[in-house]
Design a protein around this nucleic acid. Structure first.
Length: 409
DNA sequence: TCTGGGGTCCTAGGACCC
DNA sequence: TCTGGGGTCCTAGGACCC
């Protein structure tokens, strides 16, 4: 709390004195794939696909190596499309534990360079390096040093962008991937942004790009020249943000509080079935399993939640979703499951087969210790949920990888 | 047999209270 | 008898990101 106050105060003074900040954005290159290649040298220099799930079917590319990108493979692409482009690509399932560990180690290392560090996603970091010249030399020298240290220690590369604010630093870090170092001074921003396509800005997604293009706005330069009134009328608060960003301005601070230690606001699991199912009992059994998985994570995080969110996906990929707030918060799988049944109350039989399902708990608060289960009970409820499904629908008809260790006990 | 899984934030509209 | 408007909570759903 104390640090946040100091940070807010110094930011205010910075604005008042019109002092320019120096923000560094580090974006790891093909992070998941690079970590896998580092862990297993046999994968090095080969087209590698890190899949979003254990089996290749119904999977999208979570990350891919630069060797795979050379074939036109991109993250987010369906695995089938990826293998069509490069049949010899190697497939590795996503191992988030490995990536989280590496990211945390990188985060620790970055603290040597600036105490003002924000981990904005698993493979991205912002550092406020204002005033660091006295210790590390120019921003360019510091950028080089950080890249070198990461390479030495982890054997992987990252791209760095340095600019007067977060949005511009992030944009700069994407300019020369992989292993890039791009530095933008405030005075150069108008020239850089003039012809920059709007969709390159983080926060302008496909829908907004389309809306803006329909207004004949294609570049940041054009967006900057659009009247603020028009943007505010059309997009509200978001319109004001658009105008700011297009001018290379961004008042967003590097948030010290946004560290990996910060508790999440929701915890959920979803699963895409190997085959679409229609049977309501099978659907319920899957929901029960997801509830147990969510409950296990809540207990590990020492959190409990009062809002239960259930969502189902049909063959047309449309989500059906309902959420409900309950008076009591819970971290018990059975209890979350009962709440799901209440939510799906009149869903006696789905009209369409189900392709995927998900359960999320939000409205999270610290768990009251009275609820904390011992390890045996936790394992028992998970096992019984799995047994239940397998008994009804065939031995090991389901077998989520995450549960392997529990099953083998 | 194209299209995962983990999240966050924002808005609109209805219910309800004063 | 008819009626306003602000505030808050809740839910659905959209958009975006990695």
């Amino acid at each position: 709390m104390y640090f946040r106050y100091i940070s807010a105060t110094s930011h205010f003074h910075g604005d008042w004195l019109r002092l320019s900040k120096v923000i560094l954005h580090l974006d790891m290159d093909a992070f998941f794939a690079s970590v896998e290649q580092q862990a297993n040298p046999k994968l090095k220099n080969k087209p590698l696909i890190v899949g979003s799930r254990t089996d290749r079917r119904r999977t999208v590319v979570a990350a891919c190596s630069y060797e795979a990108k050379a074939f036109g493979i991109e993250s987010g692409m369906s695995s089938q499309e990826a293998f069509r482009l490069c049949p010899q690509a190697i497939f590795v399932p996503c191992d988030s534990t490995k990536y989280i560990y590496t990211a945390q180690e990188i985060s620790k290392m970055l603290k040597d360079f600036s105490p003002q560090i924000e981990m904005s996603s698993i493979d991205e970091f912002y550092l406020d390096i204002t005033g660091c010249e006295r210790i590390f030399g120019s921003p360019k020298a510091l950028g080089r040093l950080i890249k070198q240290k990461i390479k030495e220690r982890f054997g992987i590369t990252g791209s760095i962008g340095i600019a007067p604010n977060k949005s511009m630093a992030k944009l700069a870090s994407k300019e020369k991937k992989p292993d890039g170092l791009v530095i933008w001074a405030k005075k150069d921003l108008p020239g850089i942004l003039k012809d920059m396509p709007i969709e390159k800005i983080c926060g302008i997604g496909p829908k907004m790009t389309l809306y803006l293009q329909q207004m004949s706005i294609f570049s940041c330069g054009q967006l900057a020249n659009t009247s603020i009134r028009l943007l505010a009328e059309r997009f509200g608060k978001y319109g004001l943000w658009l105008k700011e960003i297009a001018r290379g301005e961004d008042t967003d601070r590097v948030e010290l509080s946004a560290t990996p230690e910060l508790p999440p606001k929701s915890v959920g699991h979803s699963y895409t079935l190997e085959k679409n199912i229609f049977n309501i009992e099978a659907i319920k059994a899957w929901i029960r399993l997801l509830c147990e998985m969510v409950a296990t994570r809540l207990r590990n995080l020492l959190l409990e939640g009062s809002v239960v969110h259930l969502y189902l996906r049909g063959p047309n990929l449309q989500w059906w979703s309902r959420q409900k707030k309950f008076a009591e918060s819970t971290l018990d799988g059975q209890s979350i499951y009962k709440r799901c049944l209440i939510i799906m109350d009149n869903l006696a039989q789905p009209r369409n087969p189900i392709r995927a399902l998900g359960v999320t708990v939000s409205g999270l608060v610290p768990a009251r210790s009275i609820y904390l289960f011992d390890e045996d009970k936790k394992r028992d409820s998970l096992l019984s949920a799995i047994d239940d499904i397998n008994q009804r629908f065939g031995e090991w008809s389901i077998y989520p990888a995450r549960l392997t260790s529990i099953n083998s006990k």
